[in-house]
C-alpha cells in the first residue's frame, strides 16, 4: 500500500494522496505529497474513517488541475460515483486506491466505524428505532408506533448539523436546513420531524449509505436507517441504485412536474 502510493506520487499519477497517518496513537487524515514523499512510510489505512471524498471535492474546487488519489472503501467508491453524477468531482480528476472493507468471504465483519458497535440499549429498543434493524422491520411497525419511535429519536437532536457537515454528498451552497422560512431557528430540538425529513428527502438518489452521518450524530439517531428507507423507495420507484454506477440520478433532470412526490416521506413518518 505504502509503496503503491509512493509510486503514484513519484511518477505523477497523482499530485496528492489522501489517507491516514498516526499521531500519538490516533489515525488522523493526511494529505501525502511528492514534496514530503517519505511520509508515505507512515501511511495507514484506518481504522478511523474520515470523509476523504469530501476533502477531495474541496481540493478539486480550488485546484481543478490537481490529480487526487485517495483510499477508497466501497462506500467511497459509491460516493465518487454520486459526486461525478452531480458534477462536484470529475471522475478523471480522482484516482481511487481500493481498500477492502465491506463484508466479504475473507472479512465477514464490516468495520465501518473504529468503535466497537455498542449493543443497543433496551430503552432504545423499547421507545426508539434500533439502528441494527432492517428496513423491512421498520416498515413492519404499525404507523402510529413507527411515528412515535422516530419522534423519540428526533427529539434528542441537538441541531449540530454534523450529519450534513460530514456527509460527502451534502455539498449545497445554501442548505435548506438553514433556511429560516423552512425550519425555525434558535430552538432545541429543532422543528421536528421537518428538520430530519428535509434532509431525508434530499438524500434520495444521493445517499450512498456510508454511515458517516450516524457516526457523527451526538444524539445517536439511526440516520442511516432513515436514508436507507428513502433510497429503498428510490430503488422501488425508479430502479436506481444510488452510487452503484455513474448513471444519472432520477432527480437530476426534473421536468416541469417534479417526480419527487411526498408519498415516500409520509410512508416513513406520519400516518
Amino acid at each position: 500500500m505504502q509503496k503503491q502510493v509512493r509510486a503514484w506520487l513519484e511518477d505523477g499519477k497523482v499530485d496528492v494522496f489522501l489517507a491516514y497517518k498516526m499521531d500519538c496513537g490516533h489515525p488522523l487524515p493526511h494529505a501525502f505529497t511528492r514534496e514530503r514523499i517519505d511520509e508515505t512510510e507512515d501511511l495507514v489505512t484506518g481504522p478511523a474513517r474520515y470523509s476523504l471524498e469530501k476533502f477531495a471535492t474541496q481540493i478539486a474546487a480550488r485546484h481543478p488541475e490537481k490529480k487526487i488519489g485517495l483510499l477508497a472503501r466501497d462506500c467511497t467508491q459509491r460516493a465518487l460515483n454520486v459526486l461525478a453524477v452531480w458534477n462536484q468531482l470529475p471522475a478523471e480528476q480522482v484516482e481511487p486506491l481500493p481498500v477492502n472493507c465491506c463484508p466479504s468471504a475473507l472479512k465477514p465483519h464490516a468495520d465501518c466505524t473504529y468503535l466497537e458497535a455498542p449493543a443497543t440499549g433496551e430503552v432504545k429498543i423499547q421507545c426508539g428505532q434500533d439502528p441494527r434493524q432492517s428496513i423491512e422491520a421498520v416498515d413492519a411497525q404499525e404507523g402510529p408506533e413507527r411515528f412515535a419511535r422516530w419522534m423519540y429519536e428526533f427529539q434528542k437532536c441537538i441541531k449540530c448539523y454534523g450529519c450534513r457537515n460530514i456527509c460527502p454528498v451534502c455539498f449545497c451552497k445554501d442548505c435548506s436546513l438553514e433556511h429560516p422560512d423552512l425550519i425555525g431557528t434558535g430552538n432545541l430540538p429543532p422543528d421536528i420531524p421537518i428538520f430530519h425529513l428535509v434532509r431525508a428527502v434530499h438524500m434520495a438518489g444521493r445517499c450512498i449509505d456510508c454511515g458517516l452521518c450516524e457516526d457523527a450524530c451526538p444524539a445517536e439517531i439511526p440516520l442511516r436507517l432513515l436514508y436507507g428507507k428513502v433510497n429503498a423507495i428510490v430503488k422501488d420507484l425508479f430502479d436506481y441504485d444510488t452510487g452503484a454506477s455513474d448513471a444519472l440520478s432520477p432527480f437530476s433532470i426534473l421536468g416541469d412536474k417534479p417526480t419527487l412526490t411526498p408519498a415516500p416521506l409520509l410512508a416513513v413518518s406520519q400516518e
Partner: peptide, 19 residues
C-alpha cells in the same frame, strides 16, 4: 445540558438508552 454542554448530554442519552 443539551444547549450548554451538548457532548455531555450525549453521555446522558447513552446511559438513558441503556436503562
Amino acid at each position: 445540558t443539551t444547549a450548554c454542554h451538548p457532548l455531555i448530554a450525549r453521555r446522558i442519552y447513552r446511559a438513558k438508552e441503556r436503562g
